[in-house]
Amino acid sequence: MSRKTMTRRRLIRICVTLAFALAAFPAPAEYADVVLNKRSEKEGVRPVVFSHWFHRIRFRCKVCHFELGFKMRAGANDVLMADIIDGKFCGMCHNNNIAWGADRCDLCHSGRPGLKSGIYGGHQTLGPGRW
């Protein structure tokens, strides 16, 4: 390969990479982040963001989806704040025992206003058959 074509290839690669970098903006959510916003925003608080990557470093799926009974479908768990304070759903851990408690509103209610409930992160392959 001549030097000229090599330089040209390198230039093309840089352009392509830059194009991708630009196309990727705004950057997507981390894979498997879940937004819960059935009631939050209507009730005047930010939507809730639940991160799988953070929790799965600490708990296997079976803890939440088998022992604690979270259904494996975004939106399928009808979570009420009163239940959480009663020790259900997130409150099974966020009880000042396994993790910090339900009084730390902002840590859970940290979502961007206007988001729909559902799974985020870019690679999801949801289709019409699902719904």
Partner: peptide
């Protein structure tokens, strides 16, 4: 590369939690 929370499109950049939550890059 992992997007910083403030730019990931799901977190509110104005939320006070962003200073407290762990960045994906830090753990992953």
């Amino acid at each position: 590369r992992w997007a910083p929370l403030a730019q990931d499109g799901v977190h509110d950049p104005k939320s006070p939690a962003l200073k407290l939550l762990q960045e994906p890059r830090e753990a992953l």
